[in-house]
Design a protein around this nucleic acid. Sequence first.
RNA 1: GCGCCCGUAGCUCAACUGGAUAGAGCAACGCCCUUCUAAGGCGUAGGUUACAGGUUCGACUCCUGUCGGGCGUACCA
Length: 551
Amino acid sequence: MSEFENHYSMKEYLAQIISESLEQFELEEPPEIRIEEPNQPDHGDASSNIAMMLAKPLRNNPRAIAQQLVDGLKYDEEKISAVEIAGPGFINFRFAEEYLFDELSEILKKGEAFGKSEANKGRRVLVEFVSANPTGPLTVGHGRNAVLGDTVSRLLEWTGAEVEREYYFNDAGRQMRVLGESVRARYLELLGKESDFPEGGYEGEYIRDIAQALVDEKGEELVEAEDEKPFKKKAEEEIFADISGTLKRMKIKMDSFFNEHSLYEEGKIEETIEKLRELGLAYDKDGAVWFKTTEFGKDKDTVLVKSTGEPTYRLPDIAYHANKLDRGFDLCIDVFGADHIATYPDVLSGIKSLGYDPDKVDVVVYQFVTLVKDGKPFKMSTRKANFVTLDDLMDEVGADVTRFFFLMRSPNTHLEFDIAQAKEAGEKNPVFYLQYAHARISSILRKVEEEYDFSEPAQLSLLSHSSEIKLIKTMLKFPESIANAARLREPHHVITYLNELASAFTSFYHDCRILGEEEKLARARMELAKATQQVLRNGLDILGISAPKQM
RNA sequence: GCGCCCGUAGCUCAACUGGAUAGAGCAACGCCCUUCUAAGGCGUAGGUUACAGGUUCGACUCCUGUCGGGCGUACCA
């Protein structure tokens, strides 16, 4: 097909020809042309509301404008088979079948690259996620964070960005001291010594395991230890090893780990305060250092350094974000739970004051996860150890299901993770519907390849059944669907799309056979099935979910 | 009190930065396995999009208010 086809989407093509026809109106400022897909298939494959937008400026009724626009429209009949005016003034387009067949062969040609786009080409993006301090195994709450962060990263990569995944942690805070004390207490306990379990300490069984490991390695050597440090160190090592294992199981690979402590070592914390002081945005009061957040519209100022000399988390957060931007990233995305949202404006104010562009920082906020067990919500706390770890969850339902469930809802809504539903191997579990469609195609291809000769090129124009056409059209929506999910940083759109695709395939499977059909038709349908499988696989790949050949 | 998020079918959720008749899955009911995987398909039923106003050619979507839920609002992270 033409050069044009390879570089521009149908939407861009339509916007182009509309804008050409629009010139006849000699508008001062031509409106943005948006092409949409009608809800009703009867209304065509693509639609524009441009005539309605112009009704007011042109003081004419939209249908008349639409008519004039359509009269002036020059389009390629190999792409567009019909243009209609409908309803209050919509202009509806129908795609030509030649176009569909050309695009289908494009999918096959592009293969695993089909769906990639360039909206973020050349951009260096840092995605910071998980960022759990090493105080215990990752829990279900961290799971949503981890899977969202990783999948948003994948989406950005599919739109051309160069992504670095970073895990930020702090091993120097109060939490970690308490952790060390907790291990020390268990250690002494194991050796039959007297011990005080710290108030608010970590009660999880894993603390005992770490203590046991220390007993095995060092015997009684640490009984006289001056402080909790050796215990903390061991705990950190063990817990990080555990966390890394969990992440790996979920197909998550971090590119870097950033220790908050390095900001202190490099003097970045001091530097940040000094700069804010110079700007008159930081001041001393009651032995603490305050950030003048009232300058940015908050009703109170915020403490940056406590009177104990210990900074609150806002200060290192600001320094950390400055550091990220210093490293030259074009965009920094933070993934965090709704409970952290309050700090975000302060961090933005902070880096803006320091002369950085706050538009380069973006955030994915997700609402809490409720685990539903036996039909009842299940409350969790790491400290109290009545949590369900991510590993437990994956033991129960598997990594694919875990990822899928975390991704199936908009980040902005509370997620109910029903373990019973997730465990269900069959009908109730939406993950398998997608994997099943993929596996089914593999199975068909295995059988069909024995029966037919596929050395000759397929004649795609033999595809004419409405289910076949529908399937092709659905596949063509994939790239835009990915781009959209990436732009909004909302992976659930990919799932919605894949469900639609799997469903379109299943209709095709139901209506059209391959095996037993005349060879030319079988060949064309096999290509269609192959393309479908490719798109399914690409989509599942973005979600980090496996695409099995057999189930 | 104030700020952010949410309220859509019995349940869990979609609805592409304002479009035409609001869609899926589960649950319910009725059909379909001598045909490439029934982990499937077809059909029925289910709605005043929390409520009340407003903006406009058009509102689940934007604005105002009310009610209900979640999370913040610490010299905790």
